[in-house]
């Protein structure tokens, strides 16, 4: 039990996927101009992460033991399939959200956080439940980072800042400071 709590905390804040592992930077910089959109893309990512974790565990157990060299190819095909499914579901359920997310929805396929999760969980040797907790933690962390970033950017929009810094450079400065802040979680749940 304690173990699962630690896995969750580790994936969500201590080693936040975006701010400590640099995974999923494209949507982190791309869709964080409004909190609402950032939050929803975060949830879509979380969903894909959980499904991917489940499929990766099954693949590991039944297919990849026989053919380890197929790891990357089989993971990426499963991820692409899941994303396609999520895309169709969102288009059906919420056309407005579908338009707001735009190109970043199909791009979840090439979001390194998803493939990264599958690879990390397999190299850490997590089982089914641990994998699912890890995926939920990672998704929560991703959403958290994106929402905080979006909130900061909404405020910065109104601040008087040199024109030179505006845009990409400023986003990177903000991300750097956020990443510094998340380093403060490093000692959390440390044993002893």
């Amino acid at each position: 039990m304690d173990d699962l709590v630690w896995i969750f905390a580790n994936a969500s804040v201590i080693n936040n996927f975006t701010l400590a592992y640099f995974l999923g930077l494209c949507p982190f910089f791309g869709v964080t101009n409004r909190i609402e959109t950032a939050f929803r893309l975060g949830l879509a990512n979380l969903f894909v992460l959980v499904i991917t974790s489940l499929s990766a565990t099954l693949l590991d157990r039944y297919v990849l033991v026989h053919a380890p060299y197929l790891q990357l190819i089989s993971y990426i095909v499963v991820i692409a399939g899941t994303v396609q499914f999520v895309e169709m579901a969102i288009k059906k359920l919420s056309p407005a959200l579908f338009r707001a997310l735009g190109i970043f929805l199909p791009l979840i396929t090439t979001n390194c956080a998803i493939l990264g999760l599958a690879l990390f969980q397999s190299s850490k040797g997590y089982g089914l439940v641990q994998g699912l907790v890890y995926a939920t933690g990672a998704g929560a962390g991703l959403t958290l980072a994106m929402v905080i970033m979006a909130g900061l950017r909404e405020e910065i929009e109104l601040a008087p800042i040199s024109k030179l810094l505006r845009g990409v450079a400023l986003n990177f400065f903000v991300a750097g400071v956020l990443s510094l802040a998340f380093m403060g979680f490093a000692g959390l749940f440390a044993k002893g």
Partner: peptide, 25 residues
Amino acid sequence: VIMVLPPGGFLTMATELAILAWWRQ
């Protein structure tokens, strides 16, 4: 040390992007 840790990556990239923007201007 902070430069080899994750924040250093963001800050270095930010600085270089800002310098490039200044230079282009």
